[in-house]
């Protein structure tokens, strides 16, 4: 039971004390964690981004393309003076615009094309009655769930019924996701308890 393990174990217990309710021990641990995490992010970003990606390439290797990034970055400091704060909108707009430009094709390909093709492929690859039945279940679920997300007013009964069936398929999806995730969450808790029992207390051999 060395001092390092004891510190880690006591902090683990301090976090777990939240299960008893908010209390001074938890509050201390929470504030310490948040503070350390902020400091950690600051150090890592300083070293890996400001030094390694900006200072060294720009001022030592002379990669002048980074001047624009430096200017955009410095504009973030305009937030400290109210009358200049609008200037911080420029780097924000650059990031948001770039995000939109990258998201557009990525979403089309990964979220739309891939899903559409995969749905058709199930029918293409189906051989035998049961596989065809499964493919039909998939199609019904797919179409009715898409119907569930139709946002215009449902002017036809068919759309309302489809939407209702779609909501059942959504519940199957959520139930399955919940079931799968419960098991993985339990294993994380077991890992923490194992640390307390084995590494700290040495109760488990």
């Amino acid at each position: 039971m060395d001092i390092t393990t004891t510190i880690s174990a006591l902090l683990t217990l301090a976090v777990f004390s939240f299960l008893y309710g908010d209390n001074p021990v938890y509050k201390f641990a929470e504030r310490l964690l948040v503070g350390l995490a902020v400091g950690y992010a600051l150090v890592i970003n300083w070293q890996q981004t400001i030094i390694d990606r900006l200072y060294t390439p720009l001022f030592i290797d002379g990669r002048l393309a980074l001047v624009v990034a430096l200017v955009l970055g410095l504009l973030m400091f305009s937030r400290f003076k109210r009358s200049w704060a609008w200037l911080s909108g420029i780097p924000l707009a650059a990031m948001i615009g770039a995000g939109a430009g990258a998201a557009l094709p990525a979403m089309l390909e990964a979220r739309i094309f891939k899903q559409l093709s995969a749905t058709v492929a199930v029918f293409h690859d189906a051989s035998g009655a049961f596989e065809m039945f499964s493919a039909i279940v998939l199609l019904v679920g797919f179409v009715t769930t898409l119907g569930y997300f139709y946002f215009g007013v449902h002017r036809s009964n068919a759309l309302a019924v489809s939407s209702k069936i779609g909501s059942y398929f959504l519940m199957i999806f959520f139930g399955a996701t919940f079931g799968y995730t419960v098991m993985s969450r339990m294993s994380i808790l077991i890992g923490r308890l194992d640390f307390l029992m084995r590494d700290w207390l040495g109760v488990i051999g």
């Binding site: 948040v34 995490a37 902020v38 950690y40 992010a41």
Partner: peptide
């Protein structure tokens, strides 16, 4: 800003 750590 709270922290960049998920559980922080």
């Amino acid at each position: 800003y709270v922290s960049s750590s998920q559980f922080g």
